[in-house]
Protein backbone atom coordinates (compact mmCIF):
# COMPACT_ATOMS: atom_id res chain seq x y z
CA UNK A 1 0.00 0.00 0.00
CA UNK A 2 1.41 3.38 -1.07
CA UNK A 3 0.60 6.39 1.14
CA UNK A 4 1.37 10.11 0.77
CA UNK A 5 3.68 10.70 3.75
CA UNK A 6 2.41 14.24 4.42
CA UNK A 7 -1.33 14.15 3.78
CA UNK A 8 -1.86 10.48 4.58
CA UNK A 9 -3.76 9.88 1.35
CA UNK A 10 -3.81 6.27 0.19
CA UNK A 11 -2.35 6.38 -3.33
CA UNK A 12 -2.37 2.73 -4.37
CA UNK A 13 -3.46 -0.63 -3.01
CA UNK A 14 -3.49 -3.32 -1.89
CA UNK A 15 -5.36 -2.04 1.19
CA UNK A 16 -3.99 -3.29 4.50
CA UNK A 17 -5.02 -2.44 8.06
CA UNK A 18 -2.90 0.37 9.56
CA UNK A 19 -2.23 1.14 13.21
CA UNK A 20 -3.21 4.82 13.35
CA UNK A 21 -4.16 5.88 16.88
CA UNK A 22 -1.76 4.75 19.60
CA UNK A 23 -3.07 3.83 23.04
CA UNK A 24 -2.36 7.25 24.70
CA UNK A 25 -4.20 9.02 21.87
CA UNK A 26 -7.22 6.75 22.25
CA UNK A 27 -7.20 7.15 26.02
CA UNK A 28 -6.93 10.95 25.67
CA UNK A 29 -9.85 10.97 23.24
CA UNK A 30 -12.25 9.17 25.57
CA UNK A 31 -11.07 11.09 28.63
CA UNK A 32 -11.84 14.25 26.66
CA UNK A 33 -15.32 13.00 25.80
CA UNK A 34 -16.19 12.32 29.44
CA UNK A 35 -14.55 15.52 30.70
CA UNK A 36 -16.34 17.63 28.10
CA UNK A 37 -19.72 16.13 28.95
CA UNK A 38 -19.21 17.02 32.61
CA UNK A 39 -17.73 20.44 31.79
CA UNK A 40 -20.50 21.51 29.44
CA UNK A 41 -23.24 20.26 31.74
CA UNK A 42 -21.89 21.93 34.86
CA UNK A 43 -20.60 24.95 32.94
CA UNK A 44 -24.02 25.66 31.52
CA UNK A 45 -25.48 25.52 35.02
CA UNK A 46 -22.80 27.85 36.40
CA UNK A 47 -23.85 30.47 33.86
CA UNK A 48 -27.56 29.75 34.29
CA UNK A 49 -28.08 28.20 37.71
CA UNK A 50 -30.90 25.69 38.27
CA UNK A 51 -33.92 26.76 40.38
CA UNK A 52 -33.17 27.64 43.99
CA UNK A 53 -33.33 25.02 46.68
CA UNK A 54 -34.99 25.71 50.02
CA UNK A 55 -33.84 25.33 53.59
CA UNK A 56 -30.91 26.71 55.51
CA UNK A 57 -27.78 27.56 53.54
CA UNK A 58 -25.74 25.90 56.30
CA UNK A 59 -26.94 22.45 55.25
CA UNK A 60 -26.55 22.81 51.50
CA UNK A 61 -23.61 22.97 49.13
CA UNK A 62 -25.48 22.23 45.91
CA UNK A 63 -24.07 24.97 43.69
CA UNK A 64 -20.68 24.50 45.33
CA UNK A 65 -20.66 20.85 44.22
CA UNK A 66 -21.64 21.83 40.67
CA UNK A 67 -18.65 24.15 40.60
CA UNK A 68 -16.44 21.52 42.21
CA UNK A 69 -17.32 18.97 39.51
CA UNK A 70 -16.62 21.63 36.90
CA UNK A 71 -13.20 22.39 38.38
CA UNK A 72 -12.23 18.72 38.75
CA UNK A 73 -13.31 17.91 35.18
CA UNK A 74 -11.47 21.05 34.02
CA UNK A 75 -8.24 19.91 35.65
CA UNK A 76 -8.60 16.48 34.03
CA UNK A 77 -9.31 18.19 30.69
CA UNK A 78 -6.26 20.45 31.00
CA UNK A 79 -3.92 17.68 32.09
CA UNK A 80 -5.17 15.36 29.32
CA UNK A 81 -4.57 18.17 26.82
CA UNK A 82 -1.05 18.73 28.15
CA UNK A 83 -0.24 15.00 28.00
CA UNK A 84 -1.61 14.95 24.47
CA UNK A 85 0.71 17.82 23.50
CA UNK A 86 3.62 15.82 24.93
CA UNK A 87 2.53 12.77 22.94
CA UNK A 88 2.57 14.84 19.75
CA UNK A 89 6.35 15.03 20.18
CA UNK A 90 6.97 11.34 20.82
CA UNK A 91 4.04 9.63 19.07
CA UNK A 92 3.57 8.51 15.48
CA UNK A 93 2.61 10.54 12.40
CA UNK A 94 -1.06 10.77 13.32
CA UNK A 95 -0.36 12.07 16.82
CA UNK A 96 0.84 15.39 15.37
CA UNK A 97 -2.02 15.82 12.90
CA UNK A 98 -4.37 17.95 15.02
CA UNK A 99 -1.60 20.31 16.15
CA UNK A 100 0.14 20.93 12.86
CA UNK A 101 -1.94 20.89 9.66
CA UNK A 102 0.65 20.81 6.81
CA UNK A 103 -0.59 24.03 5.17
CA UNK A 104 2.68 24.33 3.27
CA UNK A 105 2.02 21.13 1.34
CA UNK A 106 0.27 21.33 -2.02
CA UNK A 107 -1.04 17.76 -2.05
CA UNK A 108 -2.59 18.41 1.37
CA UNK A 109 -4.53 21.37 -0.08
CA UNK A 110 -5.59 19.29 -3.07
CA UNK A 111 -6.84 16.66 -0.64
CA UNK A 112 -8.73 19.31 1.33
CA UNK A 113 -10.61 20.53 -1.74
CA UNK A 114 -11.22 17.00 -2.96
CA UNK A 115 -12.76 16.17 0.42
CA UNK A 116 -14.80 19.39 0.38
CA UNK A 117 -16.09 18.47 -3.08
CA UNK A 118 -17.03 15.04 -1.80
CA UNK A 119 -19.05 16.52 1.09
CA UNK A 120 -20.78 18.96 -1.29
CA UNK A 121 -21.85 15.97 -3.42
CA UNK A 122 -19.68 17.14 -6.32
CA UNK A 123 -17.61 13.95 -6.11
CA UNK A 124 -19.12 10.55 -5.83
CA UNK A 125 -16.42 8.85 -3.84
CA UNK A 126 -14.13 9.85 -1.01
CA UNK A 127 -10.38 9.40 -1.14
CA UNK A 128 -9.00 7.08 1.48
CA UNK A 129 -6.85 8.46 4.27
CA UNK A 130 -4.59 7.02 6.93
CA UNK A 131 -5.53 9.19 9.93
CA UNK A 132 -7.53 12.39 9.43
CA UNK A 133 -8.40 13.70 5.98
CA UNK A 134 -7.12 17.28 5.42
CA UNK A 135 -10.53 18.88 5.98
CA UNK A 136 -11.03 16.97 9.22
CA UNK A 137 -7.51 17.89 10.27
CA UNK A 138 -8.14 21.60 9.70
CA UNK A 139 -11.43 21.44 11.60
CA UNK A 140 -9.75 19.59 14.49
CA UNK A 141 -7.02 22.20 14.63
CA UNK A 142 -9.20 25.29 14.32
CA UNK A 143 -12.05 24.08 16.50
CA UNK A 144 -10.82 21.47 18.93
CA UNK A 145 -7.15 22.38 19.45
CA UNK A 146 -7.40 26.17 19.42
CA UNK A 147 -10.78 26.12 21.17
CA UNK A 148 -9.52 23.85 23.94
CA UNK A 149 -6.35 25.85 24.41
CA UNK A 150 -8.39 29.04 24.70
CA UNK A 151 -10.96 27.59 27.07
CA UNK A 152 -8.20 26.13 29.27
CA UNK A 153 -6.39 29.48 29.48
CA UNK A 154 -9.52 31.53 30.21
CA UNK A 155 -10.78 28.83 32.57
CA UNK A 156 -7.57 28.76 34.60
CA UNK A 157 -7.67 32.57 34.76
CA UNK A 158 -11.25 32.55 36.08
CA UNK A 159 -10.26 29.83 38.55
CA UNK A 160 -7.30 31.92 39.75
CA UNK A 161 -9.66 34.79 40.58
CA UNK A 162 -10.76 32.97 43.73
CA UNK A 163 -7.28 33.62 45.15
CA UNK A 164 -7.08 37.24 44.01
CA UNK A 165 -4.36 39.55 42.75
CA UNK A 166 -0.92 39.09 44.25
CA UNK A 167 -1.25 35.37 44.85
CA UNK A 168 0.60 32.79 42.80
CA UNK A 169 -2.35 31.58 40.70
CA UNK A 170 -3.09 35.17 39.71
CA UNK A 171 0.59 35.93 39.16
CA UNK A 172 0.56 33.16 36.55
CA UNK A 173 -2.86 33.85 34.98
CA UNK A 174 -3.47 37.57 35.67
CA UNK A 175 -2.26 38.59 32.20
CA UNK A 176 -5.42 37.12 30.70
CA UNK A 177 -7.50 39.90 32.28
CA UNK A 178 -5.08 42.53 31.04
CA UNK A 179 -5.28 41.16 27.50
CA UNK A 180 -9.09 40.91 27.39
CA UNK A 181 -9.88 43.98 29.48
CA UNK A 182 -11.93 42.74 32.39
CA UNK A 183 -13.26 39.57 34.06
CA UNK A 184 -16.75 39.92 32.57
CA UNK A 185 -15.23 39.82 29.08
CA UNK A 186 -13.16 36.74 29.97
CA UNK A 187 -16.34 35.02 31.23
CA UNK A 188 -18.22 35.85 28.06
CA UNK A 189 -15.39 34.52 25.89
CA UNK A 190 -15.10 31.38 28.03
CA UNK A 191 -18.81 30.71 27.54
CA UNK A 192 -18.72 31.46 23.81
CA UNK A 193 -15.84 29.00 23.51
CA UNK A 194 -17.97 26.36 25.23
CA UNK A 195 -20.55 26.78 22.46
CA UNK A 196 -17.76 26.68 19.89
CA UNK A 197 -16.58 23.34 21.27
CA UNK A 198 -20.14 22.02 21.41
CA UNK A 199 -20.52 23.03 17.77
CA UNK A 200 -17.35 21.09 17.05
CA UNK A 201 -18.63 18.06 18.98
CA UNK A 202 -21.94 18.02 17.09
CA UNK A 203 -20.24 18.23 13.68
CA UNK A 204 -17.55 15.77 14.76
CA UNK A 205 -20.02 13.11 15.88
CA UNK A 206 -22.04 13.43 12.65
CA UNK A 207 -18.96 13.28 10.45
CA UNK A 208 -17.39 10.24 12.10
CA UNK A 209 -20.57 8.21 11.79
CA UNK A 210 -21.15 9.36 8.21
CA UNK A 211 -17.56 8.52 7.31
CA UNK A 212 -17.83 5.18 9.02
CA UNK A 213 -20.92 4.28 6.99
CA UNK A 214 -20.14 5.86 3.63
CA UNK A 215 -16.44 6.50 3.06
CA UNK A 216 -15.00 3.03 2.78
CA UNK A 217 -12.82 3.17 5.88
CA UNK A 218 -13.30 2.48 9.55
CA UNK A 219 -13.55 5.60 11.74
CA UNK A 220 -15.43 5.01 14.97
CA UNK A 221 -13.84 1.63 15.54
CA UNK A 222 -10.40 3.08 14.83
CA UNK A 223 -10.66 5.32 17.92
CA UNK A 224 -11.40 2.20 19.96
CA UNK A 225 -8.96 -0.35 18.52
CA UNK A 226 -6.49 2.08 16.99
CA UNK A 227 -6.51 0.17 13.71
CA UNK A 228 -7.87 1.54 10.44
CA UNK A 229 -9.53 -1.08 8.25
CA UNK A 230 -10.90 -0.64 4.74
CA UNK A 231 -14.12 -1.50 2.99
CA UNK A 232 -14.81 -1.93 -0.72
CA UNK A 233 -12.44 -2.00 -3.65
CA UNK A 234 -9.29 0.16 -3.89
CA UNK A 235 -9.80 3.48 -5.66
CA UNK A 236 -8.14 3.87 -9.02
Amino acid sequence: MRVNPVSGQVLAGPLEPVYVYEAPVRLWHWVMVVAMLFLMGTGYMIGRPPPSIGGEATFHYFFGYIRMIHFIAAMVFAVAFAVRVYWAFVGNHSSRAIFLPPVWNLSWWRGLFSQLGYYLFLKKESERWVGHNPLAQLAMFAMYTLGSLFIIITGLALYAEAWGWGTWPMNIMGWVFVVFGDPQMVRTLHRLTMWYLLLFAVIHVYMVFREDIMSGQSVVGTMISGIRTWKGAPRA
Binding site: P49, I53, T58, H60, F62, F63, G64, I66, W165, G166
Partner: peptide, 22 residues
Protein backbone atom coordinates in the same frame (compact mmCIF):
# COMPACT_ATOMS: atom_id res chain seq x y z
CA UNK B 1 -8.72 45.72 44.80
CA UNK B 2 -7.14 42.27 44.94
CA UNK B 3 -10.37 40.38 45.64
CA UNK B 4 -13.82 40.35 44.14
CA UNK B 5 -16.93 41.67 45.85
CA UNK B 6 -18.18 38.08 45.51
CA UNK B 7 -15.26 36.58 47.46
CA UNK B 8 -16.13 38.34 50.72
CA UNK B 9 -19.87 38.78 50.16
CA UNK B 10 -22.01 37.94 53.18
CA UNK B 11 -24.53 36.29 50.79
CA UNK B 12 -21.86 33.91 49.46
CA UNK B 13 -23.18 30.94 51.50
CA UNK B 14 -26.45 31.19 49.54
CA UNK B 15 -24.48 31.11 46.30
CA UNK B 16 -22.67 27.94 47.35
CA UNK B 17 -25.90 26.41 48.58
CA UNK B 18 -27.65 27.15 45.29
CA UNK B 19 -30.17 29.61 46.71
CA UNK B 20 -30.84 32.48 44.35
CA UNK B 21 -33.17 35.43 44.04
CA UNK B 22 -35.19 34.75 40.88
Amino acid sequence: YSQRVHDKCYRRPHFDAGQFVE
